[in-house]
Design a protein around this nucleic acid. Structure first.
Lengths: 166, 166
DNA sequence: TTGATCTCCATGATTTCCCATGTCATCTCT
DNA sequence: AGAGATGACATGGGAAATCATGGAGATCAA
């Protein structure tokens, strides 16, 4: 049922108006995952900044709906439910993709990513990191610093690529 | 059936006349959720102050109708039904949105939010907090103090994203 | 009349929209 | 094969529209 998935690390520029192009390949997945009713012409991306890490998590509309169903499965008055609503609903925004394939990063997302006023004045680089059902959006500098380089992770990771025996 | 939902945390100013702009994105949802009959030109928001917490809960007209149906599903003479009717029906007001997109906060709502006379004299900041089918309206100061900050909630929250076992 | 409330207007800031440009990769035609 | 056309993408800038907010006058109730 997995149609197509977010993949890859794509570096793109954010300009001084906080605009970024969404990588074309990812944009196509977002388009496909946005039910076409006539309340909105353009497709959208759901950006979450409440779930930890110095990056934003991004979902297609359908991806976000699945997330909300998971949240709604918790009892209405539970603490977990409150926390999840705070992290993934209150601390999220639906962002429209304009006709040039760009979005404007909302202020809170920029905050979460660790974007400084100087970054904004000059523009800065961001990385889109595909994670199958979602992608993450990082400030390039942060991503490069916090992400283990390939040499160190790959041998152990590879070992787990074989499905575990039942 | 999910049309569109309230999301995000938006900080706005309340002036000394108790006026606040409703964030444009939320206003659009309220507009869409207010059936257009000619008894009212302007759209409205249903503000509830009886449900606990130091904030007001706000619904679109349609959202409130759904709420009333839920309440009506409880047996007529049950204690739960009485409580819900008091909290969500008696202690609520329909507030009109003016042509500039603003509302005037009713006194009862201000009371619930913990707004002091000094706050009113100078004006103060409020936060609109989206929760899908409704949004909450807080005094900014209170919200910031009572809401766990991002760093502290996130690691534990993420762990709970797995749906609860039935 | 005196507050209080409602309407309308003004303004600065932001956001949105539209068009232009540069750079690739691909395609077409001789 | 190579020159040039074509089209998709990323990026930049200016003009126009929207948004939040402040204040002045009109209206209403007591």
């Amino acid at each position: 049922m997995v149609t197509e998935a977010f993949k890859g690390e794509i570096y793109l520029k954010v300009d001084s108006k906080a605009r970024v192009s969404i990588p074309a390949a990812m944009r196509r997945i977002l388009d496909a995952g946005d039910p076409a009713d006539d309340s909105h012409t353009r497709s959208r991306v759901v950006m979450v900044y409440g779930a930890g890490g110095s990056y934003a998590q991004c979902f297609s509309i359908r991806g976000a709906q699945k997330l909300y169903e998971t949240i709604a499965a918790h009892p209405e008055d539970s603490e977990k439910r409150d926390g999840l609503e705070l992290a993934y609903v209150a601390r999220s925004s639906d962002v429209e993709i304009d006709d040039d394939g760009r979005i404007v990063l909302p202020p809170r997302i920029r905050l979460r990513m660790g974007v400084t006023p100087e970054d904004m004045a000059k523009g800065f680089n961001a990385v889109f990191v595909g994670k199958l059902d979602r992608f993450e959006l990082w400030k390039a500098e942060t991503y490069d610093a916090e992400t283990p380089d390939l040499a160190s992770i790959s041998p152990s990771i590879r070992r787990h690529l074989t499905p575990p025996k039942p």
